[in-house]
């Protein structure tokens, strides 16, 4: 099991738009809610009301600050969950076979009843996408909501990950990245979707759409403010003339 499948039929994953994410953390708690009540053990919280609370979350929002050479500094909200890597090192290090990649859709999952909680897969993941549950002591990670996306008990529109369904800004997109015609693949092509830490050789499936250029100075608009009058009287006169033409 621990070996990666020779072939995956589809590559389901997320495309995250860094130009649109407002950093609201909605996807964080929606994910926690769904995955607490569904796949595997509930996502626990230790010292939940105490001095050092530590909970398991499958999706977290970092905020980075970019200081460009020109123009003011920028803040980029940066959601991060498992990228369901093609070449997932977290899978091959797993001694028990608890970690595996599904051949039908490429989703990387942990079979919790096999997990010994050795933590090695989390060590092997460059992205911090795996967290050991502080209560259940098994490895937790994004399931790509595998129990939603095929769930016949949900209406068709709702067969998307909980984080995608809830994202108020529409910054999260879900689909098959092996299909070049899928909406997500098109977005990636149009917006120069990128991989995180490509040098780690993990070949992530999830892609990130970079922020669009900001604070551009456009001077083509200057003629728009050509004065028609410098004084109130001048303005009123101009207006009278203009209105008569209406």
């Amino acid at each position: 099991m621990t070996a990666l499948p020779n072939r995956v039929e589809r590559k389901l994953g997320l495309v995250i738009d860094l130009d649109t994410c407002v950093g609201c953390h909605a996807c964080v708690t929606a994910c926690k809610g769904w995955n607490t009540e569904n796949y595997g053990a509930p996502l626990g919280d230790a010292d939940a009301y105490g001095a050092d609370p530590v909970g398991a979350f499958l999706n977290r929002i970092h905020s980075f600050e970019v200081t460009p050479d020109e123009g003011p500094a920028q803040v980029v909200h940066f959601p991060k969950s498992c990228l369901h890597c093609d070449d997932a090192p977290c899978v091959t290090v797993c001694p028990t076979g608890a970690s595996y990649k599904r051949s039908e859709d490429g989703i990387v999952l942990v079979n919790e009843s096999d997990c010994i909680g050795c933590g090695l897969c989390a060590w092997a993941c460059p992205y911090g996408a795996r967290e050991q549950d502080p209560v259940e002591k098994v490895m937790k990670k994004c399931t790509l909501c595998v129990d939603r996306i095929y769930n016949d008990n949900l209406p068709e529109v709702d067969r998307v990950p909980a984080c995608v369904r809830t994202c108020p800004a529409g910054a999260r997109h879900f689909g098959d990245l092996s299909d070049p015609d899928s909406d997500v693949s098109r977005l990636v092509a149009e917006r120069d979707g990128m991989d995180l830490m490509p040098e780690q050789g993990t070949a992530p499936v999830n892609k990130y759409l970079p922020p669009r250029p900001k604070d551009a100075e456009l001077d083509i608009l200057a003629p728009l403010l050509e004065p028609v009058a410098e004084t109130p009287r001048g303005l009123l006169g101009w207006l009278d003339r203009a209105l008569e033409k209406l």
């Binding site: 909970g55 970092h62 995180l196 922020p211």
Partner: peptide, 18 residues
């Protein structure tokens, strides 16, 4: 992927995690 002049502004949570 945000270029060379980038630094963490806020961590994703003030609580600890694994």
């Amino acid at each position: 992927g945000l270029g060379p002049r980038v630094r963490l502004f806020e961590p994703p949570h003030t609580g600890g995690n694994y």
